[in-house]
Amino acid sequence: MKDISVKDLENTAVRMRMKVVDMIYKAQSGHPGGSLSAADFVTACYFKYMNIDPKNPRWPDRDRMVLSKGHVCPIQYACLAGTGFFPEAVLDTLRKEDSMLQGHPSMNKCPGIDISTGSLGQGLACAAGMALAGKLDKKDYKVFCVVGDGEAQEGEIWEAANTAHKYQLDNLITFVDFNNLQIDGTCDEVMPNGNLGEKFRAFGWEVIEIDGHNMEEIVAVLNKCYASKNGKPKCIYAHTIKGKGVSFMENQCGWHGAAPNQEQYEQAMAELEAQLNN
């Protein structure tokens, strides 16, 4: 665990958001909405908690990060560049031919990606497999997983939730990115999830509800989860805003998978820059 203040993490998260917007603008393709809603807790994981070695991306004892909602990989790419897995210039190749930065993450193309994802609902089972391997091998590493609220409509999520409970995977720390938006509308309109936190609790998980954009709360919950050995998998039920940090993207499902034009890009970058050192 690295010694970094909440204020520095907040500024880092803003810088990661700027990279997200920048790379999607340059690619003219990608998913800004979910990348921005997950930005704060993914940044906290990479810059404070995760025990990783950019020079040895497949180090067996490392902490892992699985984006079950693989389309928000721009925020993971920004964090991997920011922690030294590849040069920042690589971010400009997002979604371009022969790039290591595929539209959805590919573990054999990009160093630091622990499993290839992109088809929704599948990442939590993979993360559970990694956490189970850690238990079988008596290793102390943690596995972080990011699940979307829309994605929780997939049945395999709940099969994996059962498995994590059965095998007491307290080393599996899952964020549910509760932004209540999916492609065709709000989750409540498309397919109401009810209270996802209560659902995970019913599956035997420890559930902690937080404001997913409050870095103090994120750090407090991760301190607790990182140290826990109570036999329960962890669900951090994070209230978030899709598109967080860019005024015109916030709470708009249209920004799920759209790239900004030049004017929108300049406004977004200016808005984010103003949030630095606030």
Binding site: I115, L124, G129, M130, E159, A160
Partner: peptide, 12 residues
């Protein structure tokens, strides 16, 4: 889930 769990285990 069995297939996904296996994938995660195989990465380790």
């Amino acid at each position: 889930n069995g297939a996904g769990l296996a994938a995660g285990l195989a990465t380790c």
